[in-house]
Simulated scan of single mutants.
Amino acid sequence: MNTKKILAVKCAAIAAVLSLSACAGMNNQDKSAVAGAGIGAVGGAVLTGGSPIGTVGGAAVGGFIGNEVGKKKE
């Protein structure tokens, strides 16, 4: 892997960890959306070889899925 790809994956992982640490006042749905976005960003970066578009796309898809999973069933 070249340096750019390694840096992109590390930045995505750090962003995911930092975003999860700010979840103290969030409800379950918000936490699920943030976790999904973090996981999606890392997955998108890995699958596309560190492409910024893949990272952002993965974060968007992961955030949407996390949001839907975190909804309370009424």
Rank of each mutant, 00 (worst) to 15 (best):
F64S: 06
N27V: 00
K4F: 13
A22P: 00
V61G: 04
G63M: 05
V56S: 15
A13C: 11
A59C: 11
K10P: 00
A37C: 03
V34E: 01
G70E: 03
A37M: 04
G54K: 09
K71W: 00
N2E: 10
D30R: 04
T55W: 06
V56E: 06
L7R: 11
V46L: 15
A16S: 14
A8V: 04
L18M: 14
G63D: 07
A15Y: 05
I39D: 00
K31W: 01
G66K: 07
T48G: 12
G63F: 02
E68L: 15
N67D: 08
A60L: 15
I65F: 13
Q29Y: 01
M26G: 01
K71N: 01
G43F: 12
K71L: 00
S51C: 11
G66I: 03
E74F: 05
V17A: 13
N2R: 07
E68M: 14
L20F: 08
S32C: 11
I65W: 05
K72F: 05
G57E: 11
V42P: 06
A13N: 01
V46T: 04
A22D: 09
V69E: 02
V34W: 04
C11G: 05
G63T: 04
T3W: 11
A41N: 06
N67G: 10
L18F: 11
L47W: 04
A13E: 03
K5A: 15
C23I: 13
L47V: 13
C23N: 13
C11Y: 11
I6H: 12
G49E: 03
G63L: 06
G36C: 04
A41V: 06
N67I: 00
L20I: 02
G40I: 01
L47Y: 08
G25M: 10
N27M: 01
A13S: 14
G62E: 08
G63W: 07
V46N: 03
G66A: 08
K10A: 14
G63K: 01
K5N: 13
G36I: 03
F64N: 04
S19T: 10
K4S: 15
C23K: 01
G49Y: 07
A37N: 00
K4E: 15
K31L: 07
K73T: 06
A13Y: 05
G57K: 12
A35I: 09
C11F: 12
C23H: 08
P52L: 06
I39N: 00
G58H: 07
M1R: 14
A13T: 12
S51N: 15
M26K: 14
V69Q: 05
G63Y: 07
A41P: 09
A59H: 12
V46F: 08
C11W: 09
V56R: 08
